[in-house]
Design a protein around this nucleic acid. Structure first.
Length: 538
DNA sequence: TTAGGGTTAG
């Protein structure tokens, strides 16, 4: 863009007499490009130098980049050619731009010259340009592959400096190569460099709690990699998201003991977990701590309370939200979306008041807003009214469809179920795991257990893969229909389908077995529960 | 790849 705009400015300023020069320039340029592609570097360079005769200021860095790019397209390019090209740039006093370096790097990677590529990368950084993640990542792999291990470490350091995290296979390759060649110390250095970036966060993401914990302990033994508030918070979040609140709380204690002060982000994560578990007293105590520490609750604190609202603890949620609202923090659409829940009946007067507030604060409702309101309509008696609201949503998304589908299924309204599925087909929406689970619940509600099992089997063979909610809904549905034995059969077969159970699955079956007075099954379940170690709820 | 937080459906 910049080239074309500068040349159009130039051509506007050109007088009649050097008009022919302009034609010469274009011709010379295209000649240079053709020679570079086909006739080797010497002739291409001659043509390039000839361009100086076309007009003052020619050739430009763009012409030069084009020269290099065309040379890369010729077949017999070697690294000597590239270094000749680089000297030419210096000789002519052309200032390279980011594209110049990237073009060179592309060429050097093509011919596998990792050493030169590293040199160009460092030159690029010296000129205050930032190499891309991809180019550094490619270079790291090339260096490791060609056993330029010292260079690989230099690349790794460059990447870390830019906050680029190399991919896992690349790290493994490098550490492997270093270790095999007796460079154990270097391998350890690489490991430590990555310890508090890639590795720890990777463990948390993959829910490898033990590994993450060991990693955290290892970090505390090395002052250079001492974990910070963020490190702890990441782990706390990972524990909370997997239903391990007690462990999260004990980690919070350990973190404080080590002199790290949790901030509002840490507390928001814990508040959300406590609120989702309806642990009202603990939520209240944590609020006291937050205020004692003179931290300001913010929009995230407000949304963290949504669990309390869903569980119907409107009073305390209202008090806490009120304090946050008047504490002066900026609120946004997410907070309003949570706030809607306070008006559980969605009386139109209250609703329009909230919407007025939003408009006053320049906050645009989003699909989450519409879907929340839709859910309110679905709770009402009339599905027709809900459908009417649904049809007023400009761009309903999959959640909108699932909201109305779920309500129709719960109410056993077969006509509406059919209508919604037809609507989805018309609009090009496919049922996902949530939609299929709704349908399974519908079949159980109306006693069509075979249809329900058909859907389940279809999901196993063709997808979408049943989730934990799907499995537990099926268990509940079968047990409600006095089909405990069928439920237990599915339960026993889960593993062969590549699925698993969690603590809720056990609880559902156990409860049904006790109600039926099936002592054998109760014992069997207790044995399984002890033997396998039950996974916590997600 | 970019070190941690929230709101809608089963």
């Amino acid at each position: 863009m910049s080239r074309s705009s500068s040349s159009s400015v130039q051509s506007l300023a050109m007088s009649e007499e050097n008009h022919h020069n302009c034609a010469d320039y274009a011709e010379l340029r295209s000649n240079m490009q053709n020679l570079a592609k086909s006739s080797g570097i010497t002739k291409a360079l001659q043509a390039f130098r000839l361009m100086r005769t076309a007009a003052p200021g020619k050739p430009t860095i763009y012409d030069y980049n084009s020269l290099v790019n065309c040379c890369l397209k010729s077949e017999n390019l070697c690294s000597h050619d590239l270094s000749t090209l680089y000297s030419e740039m210096k000789t002519l006093g052309l200032s390279p731009n980011a594209s110049t370096f990237n073009t060179f790097l592309k060429g050097l990677n093509l011919i596998g010259e990792s050493k030169v590529a590293l040199w160009v990368t460092i030159e690029m950084c010296n000129h205050a340009f930032t190499p891309s993640f991809t180019s550094l990542s490619t270079l790291l792999k090339k260096c490791s592959d060609s056993m330029e291990l010292e260079d690989a470490i230099t690349v790794l350091e460059l990447m870390m400096g830019l906050n680029y995290i190399p991919t896992e296979p690349q790290v493994i390759l490098l550490i492997n190569r270093l270790s095999k060649h007796g460079m154990t110390e270097k391998a350890t250095l690489v490991l430590y460099k990555l310890l508090d970036k890639a590795l720890f966060y990777g463990f948390c993401k993959k829910r490898l709690f033990k590994e993450a914990s060991n990693c955290l302990n290892k970090m505390t033994t090395n002052s250079r990699f001492y974990p910070n508030v963020r490190t702890y918070t990441t782990f706390i979040k990972c524990l909370c998201d997997n239903g391990r609140i007690q462990e999260a709380l004990s980690l919070l204690g350990r973190m404080e003991k080590r002199g790290l002060d949790p901030d509002i982000v840490t507390y928001n994560i814990i508040l959300r977990a406590l609120s989702n578990q309806n642990m009202v007293h603990e939520v209240f105590d944590l609020f006291q701590t937050i205020y004692q520490k003179e931290l300001s609750p913010d929009r995230y604190t407000a949304t963290a309370l949504s669990g309390l609202l869903k569980k119907g603890n409107l009073g305390i949620a209202r008090t806490l939200l009120h304090d946050i609202f008047y504490g002066g923090s900026d609120m946004d659409i997410a907070v309003y979306n949570v706030y809607y829940c306070l008006f559980s009946g969605f009386k139109s007067k209250e609703l329009s008041y909230v919407i007025e507030c939003m408009i006053k604060n320049d906050i645009e409702p989003n699909n989450i807003t519409f879907n929340t309101i839709l859910k309110g309509f679905c709770k009402g008696k009339s599905m027709d009214e809900a459908l009417e609201y649904f049809q007023s949503i400009k761009k309903p998304d999959l959640v909108s469809f699932n909201t109305i589908l779920s309500a129709s299924c719960k109410k056993g309204d077969s006509k509406m179920v059919e209508k919604v599925i037809d609507l989805m087909k018309d609009e090009g929406f496919k049922l996902n795991v949530v939609g299929f689970t709704c349908l399974m619940q519908y079949y159980c509600n109306v006693g069509k257990l075979n249809d329900c099992l058909d859907v389940f089997e279809c999901m196993i063979s063709q997808g979408p893969r049943p989730s934990m909610v799907t499995i537990n809904s099926l268990m509940i549905g079968l047990c409600k229909n006095q089909e405990l034995e069928a439920a237990y059969r599915v339960f026993c077969n889960l593993e062969s389908y590549g699925l698993s159970s969690d603590s809720r699955t056990y609880k559902i079956l156990m409860r049904a077995a006790k109600i039926e007075g099936n002592d054998l099954l109760v014992e069997e379940l207790q044995r399984k529960c002890r033997g396998e170690g039950v996974k916590p709820n997600n």
